[in-house]
Design a protein around this nucleic acid. Structure first.
Lengths: 369, 369
DNA sequence: GTGAAAGCGCTAACAG
DNA sequence: CTGTTAGCGCTTTCAC
């Protein structure tokens, strides 16, 4: 394999004397220079570049030639300032771990990109200044998508009131703001009922409803199903949403009086419980049933019963709705003609139960592997 | 989904008839209005807001009051245009599936955010107009990170030449441009040697070196190790990097004359092979050894031997280097003082072999689970 | 300390 | 068809 050599220089060795001035950095040309070079006015350059048909083929050609020679790229700031739009929008999410957020963001980026706008991202993580960051982001976009547990409604309200279109994603609705979510409660009911049908009576819930609207919906469904079955409803066991948190929580839960089954707020947690259970000599699902949420790749390999959601569609829909709102606003900046304005949209995308081994041994309909 | 209605008010009770004009969208205030309200000039407002000490406490207070009342947020376009900087930078990646890119992007966002700049993302996927998109992105940022298999060097060169600082990530170096990567070749040598030590003689490589610099490096190491062991080096079996591709490729590979082991370019592929092997009645690792790359969560549950890379650090380093370059450029826009300019940086972050079951039964040192 | 005014680079009337 | 010119919203000298 001689072609291996191509990649050979990696890492080591001697990059050799790297060219110090390989790239001649020129200060970017402006429209004035192009105009001068082409022997026309800046207005004509602008027209030629934007494909206006009020330009002779000849002049257009001259302009393009000048553009080539000068490597001219219009300065976005100048353009945006003049146009009064950023041609960009933002998305705010708590984090980017696990496939969930990444897929949503990807779906969002795809759609937004198709609609002609760049996308700015902001991960709030646990930053104390998340609100400020979001407000700042809102100032550099034409519209913004705010996901789940990132900032308070108050912050969202402020942004919306400032005239920046907002779409809420995986988050409780607010008056006057579009909201797109996935079905949590209903699917959690189905899931929990399924566990009960397996004979599990002592079922615990792992996850913090306060920490995320999604988890809140899942817990609500969990509780409703148990209630419907005449079973006592345990309080949720709050914890983070990662593997380690699942392991830690499981260790505590699996002491005396351990549950027959644990409904986890997401797959990472469930996988953590799985691990802890095995470490404790418990077999899943015989000694302990476990369910997750998200259907991450590992769920399949762990035989985890879980829930699949249309993540990309979630992001794509948000992007499209946002785009529409931006259009509307552009058409009617003052927001005066309320009559014309569409009411806030709400949509709940359905999710699907994926039944595997971890919930119990009896095969049930409705899932796949 | 007609039953979507059921969940319409999910979670929060009764939003009731959605308020049509809940949010009074006001056209954003400008610095002029603030100035007028505060009874000062726009210059003073600007100073007060940016914390200049050439302002009386009294006037500063008046300005801030006016800002509050008007809910004023400085328009970023105006500010950026005046300052001559975007306070934003971009990152270009092929996709966002699997934890790899997501983690890199997250590490990047964290670091960039700490350094005070917003981040724009661009997923090139298989878009035919990727180059244009990247060039356009480059026009709206102060600097840009370009990952692996997204656009040609030619495009990168053009951008760099236009004066926009560039950092390459997981990609072959270019003269004059900083590059940060992870160790592929070396670790692939170790990994392959490990398989050989297990007694595997007929080892295949699954993945397309042409499609990604990372894969190319891994194949190079694979080839080198086999060569060193005096074994024949098979051509790579090109394929995409997802589960389905792995399954499909495996079906073909596992016919007659099937290999003892398959080195896969990433975990998804390896997991796909795993699945296909089991479906074909083959046991891993006894009948077929398999290795992956990335150490995704599922790898742990599948007992997959793989390689772990410092993804976040990769992104964070890129962000920091880029920031430095931007600083340098700001200090010396013309790029005249070459003497002062640092040579292009190169760094290869080390990766770690994670030995689990899938590579063979004899326990070996160097890994963990 | 504060104000007036000159841009930053571009678009979009408005005149020719 | 093309040029002139007035902004877009803000920062920043340069005077006062």
């Amino acid at each position: 394999m001689s072609d291996a050599r191509v990649w050979e220089n990696e890492g080591s060795g001697k990059p050799g004397p790297v060219a110090l001035k390989a790239l001649s950095k020129t200060k970017a040309a402006t429209i004035y220079e192009v105009a001068q070079r082409a022997g026309v006015s800046i207005a004509t350059v602008s027209r030629a570049l934007r494909g206006s048909d009020l330009v002779t083929e000849a002049t257009r050609a001259r302009v393009h030639a000048a553009v080539q020679e000068l490597h001219f790229t219009p300065n976005r700031l100048g353009r945006s300032l003049a146009e009064g739009r950023h041609a960009a929008n933002g998305i705010v999410f708590p984090d980017l771990v696990g496939p969930y957020y990444a897929e949503v963001v990807l779906g969002y980026e795809e759609a937004a990109s198709d609609l002609g706008s760049s996308v700015l991202i902001l991960a709030t993580r646990r930053r104390p200044d998340a609100a400020d960051a979001v407000v700042e982001l809102a100032a550099r976009v034409d519209g913004i998508v705010v996901m789940g547990n990132t900032v308070d409604d108050e912050v969202v309200r402020g942004i919306a009131a400032s005239g920046v279109p907002v779409v809420l994603l995986a988050r409780d609705p607010m008056p006057g703001v579009d909201t797109i979510r996935t079905r949590n409660r209903g699917t959690a009911v189905t899931l929990t009922a399924h566990l009960v049908a397996h004979g599990h009576r002592h079922v615990a819930f792992l996850g913090d409803p306060v920490g995320s609207p999604d988890v809140a919906g899942r817990y609500a469904g969990f509780a409703a199903a148990l209630r419907a079955a005449g079973l006592p409803v345990p309080a949720p066991v709050p914890c983070d949403l990662d593997l380690a948190a699942g392991e830690a929580a499981a260790v505590a839960l699996l002491g005396d009086r351990r549950p027959d089954a644990i409904v986890c707020a997401n797959d990472e947690l469930a996988l953590g419980v799985h691990l802890a259970a095995e470490a404790a000599g418990l077999r899943v699902p015989d000694d302990l049933a476990v369910t997750g949420w998200d259907d991450v790749l590992a769920a399949r390999f762990a035989g985890l019963t879980t829930v699949r959601q249309p993540m990309r569609e979630l992001g794509a829909t948000a992007a499209r709705w946002l785009h529409q709102r931006i259009q509307e606003r552009t058409a009617d900046p003052a927001g005066s003609t309320d009559a014309v304005r569409r009411a806030a949209r709400r949509r709940v995308l359905s999710t699907r139960l994926v039944v595997r081994r971890s919930c119990g041994t009896h095969p049930h309909p409705g899932g796949n592997s």
